[in-house]
């Protein structure tokens, strides 16, 4: 499938699943008895988090591919995945407190999942910052790949550390296990929503990648044109 057809496919799927997800969230899923209407943000919050994580896994994969092939295409993919991943993580960090405040009375809780998300956000903000401060495209790609790989290796360690730390320092209010003992209608809604946000992720990733491909194409074209011009001036 060509990139264009593929994009159309992703966009249509995004449209269908997102419409279905919104309908199910607001019309079908029952209102949670204890948390009330705010609990509905859960159907956005959780899929965002999962897809952010998918993004970082993609950064790891494409960084690895870049180092083994040196093909700039993989660097562009790693960058796009990281940016969309950071965007989704930011949204997770925003929707989390919106959910937490009415339910637990606090904006932020150092709950294991939320803390892991925050640490991930910091790691990949660092990844994106690093990229801005290296001029040479090849060096940038190589060093970013090193950070993309080590950053992801760190994720399970961060997770276990925070998990265990939580059990040793229990909090007064603790997050009820997401997804544990979920009502079947709620579960169905969650799954549709996960699909919708996965397509959203893929669509944004593809768009970001298009921009990056176009940018590097123009750069090469401009360089070639100017080089040809310089050649012409000399002879």
């Amino acid at each position: 499938m060509s990139r264009c057809k593929f994009a159309i496919f992703i966009d249509s799927m995004l449209f269908i699943t997102m419409a279905a997800a919104m309908a199910m969230i607001f019309l079908y899923a029952p209102i949670e008895s204890e948390m009330g209407i705010v609990q509905k943000i859960f159907y956005v919050h959780v899929p965002l988090a999962w897809n952010a994580f998918l993004g970082f896994a993609m950064v790891f994969y494409y960084s690895f591919r870049y180092l083994s092939t040196r093909n700039p295409r993989y660097d562009r993919r790693a960058l796009s995945a990281a940016e969309v991943g950071v965007l989704f993580t930011t949204l997770v960090l925003i929707t989390g407190p919106i959910w937490a405040k009415p339910v637990w009375g606090i904006w932020w809780t150092w709950d294991a999942r939320l803390t892991l998300t925050l640490v991930l956000w910091l790691i990949y903000i660092g990844y994106l910052m690093l990229r801005r401060y290296i001029e040479s495209p090849e060096r940038r790609a190589v060093l970013a790949a090193v950070v993309g790989i080590t950053g992801f290796i760190d994720v399970p360690l961060v997770y276990f550390a925070i998990r265990w730390w939580r059990t040793q320092h229990p909090q007064p209010v603790i997050a009820g296990g997401e997804g544990s003992g979920l009502d079947p209608a709620m579960a169905a809604t969650l799954w549709v929503s996960v699909a919708a946000f996965t397509f959203l992720f893929l669509a944004l990733f593809g768009r970001r990648l298009d921009v990056e491909v176009e940018r590097s194409r123009r750069e090469t074209e401009r360089d070639a044109a100017e080089a040809a011009h310089a050649q012409g001036v000399r002879t």
């Binding site: 910091l122 790691i123 903000i125 660092g126 910052m129 690093l130 950053g151 760190d154 550390a161």
Partner: peptide
């Protein structure tokens, strides 16, 4: 200047 930004999040565990 970039060192703490890169390395402190990774050293959380």
């Amino acid at each position: 200047l970039l060192l703490p930004i890169l390395f402190l999040p990774l050293s959380v565990p």
